[in-house]
């Protein structure tokens, strides 16, 4: 097959799968939350309520596309698109299987970090353009939270990079032929998980949204499909982080018996469910607690992890 055509097929398949999965996640999350809270969740529309998502989509498409008169119109429209774009672009570097990868670069991890930093703009611009006090507060929280957690997110991954000796995600997976990095890099895994939650603004770190105090935080003024884009952007983020965790710490597509694609899907799904479990079980911390954990505990810990890993790698390499 023509390699260009193949690439396009791969891109389309990944795009389709990722978007559909993130849409389906809405249903999955509601069903799982219900399960853990002794309820049923959506079970009326279609088998097992699966078509609930479709119903929601129809509804959200037909909602009035309302832009508040006091908002900064263009920025307001543009902001939700940024989060979709940055997250989707990141999928370009994820090696789902050796075959299913859009592009293989040797700076994949740096690309991911760059994109997730750009994602902050979406939140901050949305908050700013809404011209609303609650939105602005949410935006400020988002900016400081994502900035702080990004610092050690990058550091927490460096252990795996050192072990694999590359920024390329494919190389990192291949480096886990014998042992998943979660074992040598357990601390790194925990730190990356926490940072990933904060990065996707999922509970318990959904302070930018904090519906109990800030109405709906940065997207208070959003409705209709623009709100939908934030919503989908958040689920895309969950899929992305889950996939990254599997790739970085759990050997990616590697696994016995089953084909690679099943392995990566299973692993990713497991972490998605874990994200949802966190939401079901965790209360939201105060913002000052969030910040002090980030800077006073998690950052030193990731530095320590880096130093120890570095020392071990150096010692072994000698």
């Amino acid at each position: 097959m023509n390699p260009t055509l193949l690439k396009i097929v791969v891109i389309l398949v990944i795009l389709l799968v990722v978007l559909n999965v993130s849409a389906l996640l809405i249903w999955l999350e509601r069903r799982l939350l219900a399960l853990w809270q002794d309820r049923y969740g959506p079970n009326r529309v279609g088998p097992f309520g699966l078509l609930q998502v479709v119903a929601d989509m129809i509804k959200i498409f037909f909602k009035e596309d309302w832009i508040p008169p006091f908002a900064d119109k263009w920025v307001f429209v543009f902001a939700p698109a940024i989060i979709m774009i940055t997250v989707l672009l990141t999928f370009a570097v994820i090696p789902f299987t050796p075959l299913f990868q859009i592009t293989e670069t040797n700076i994949a991890l740096l690309f991911f970090l760059g994109m997730s930093s750009l994602g902050v703009y979406s939140i901050v611009l949305a908050a700013w353009a809404s011209n609303n006090k609650y939105s602005l507060l949410g935006g400020m929280r988002a900016a400081s939270q994502m900035l702080s957690y990004e610092v050690f997110m990058g550091l927490s991954m460096m252990g795996t990079v050192m072990l694999a000796g590359s920024f390329s995600l494919r190389r990192i997976v291949e480096a886990q032929q014998h042992i998943w990095f979660v074992i040598p890099q357990f601390l790194g895994f925990v730190l990356f998980l926490i940072a990933g939650i904060a990065e996707t603004r999922r509970l318990p770190f959904d302070l930018p949204e904090a519906e109990s105090e800030l109405v709906a935080g940065f997207h208070s003024e959003y409705s209709g499909m623009k709100f939908g884009m934030f919503f989908v952007g958040e689920y895309l983020g969950v899929v992305l982080i889950s996939a990254l965790i599997s790739v970085l710490f759990f050997g990616g597509w590697l696994g016995p018996v089953l084909p690679p694609v099943v392995w990566i899907v299973l692993k990713t799904l497991f972490f998605i469910c874990f994200f949802i479990l966190l939401r079901a079980a965790m209360p939201r911390p105060r913002f000052d607690q969030l910040m002090s954990w980030g800077w006073k505990w998690l950052l030193p810990l990731s530095l320590a992890n880096l130093a120890i890993t570095g020392a071990v790698v150096l010692a072994r390499g000698r």
Binding site: L35, W36, Q37, D38, R39, Y40, L277, A281, M282
Partner: peptide
């Protein structure tokens, strides 16, 4: 608490259909 919430998977549901 993560574990306890997880265990709720096996509890009966209160919802009236």
């Amino acid at each position: 608490s993560l574990w306890l919430v997880l265990l709720h998977m096996f509890w009966p549901r209160f919802t009236v259909q």
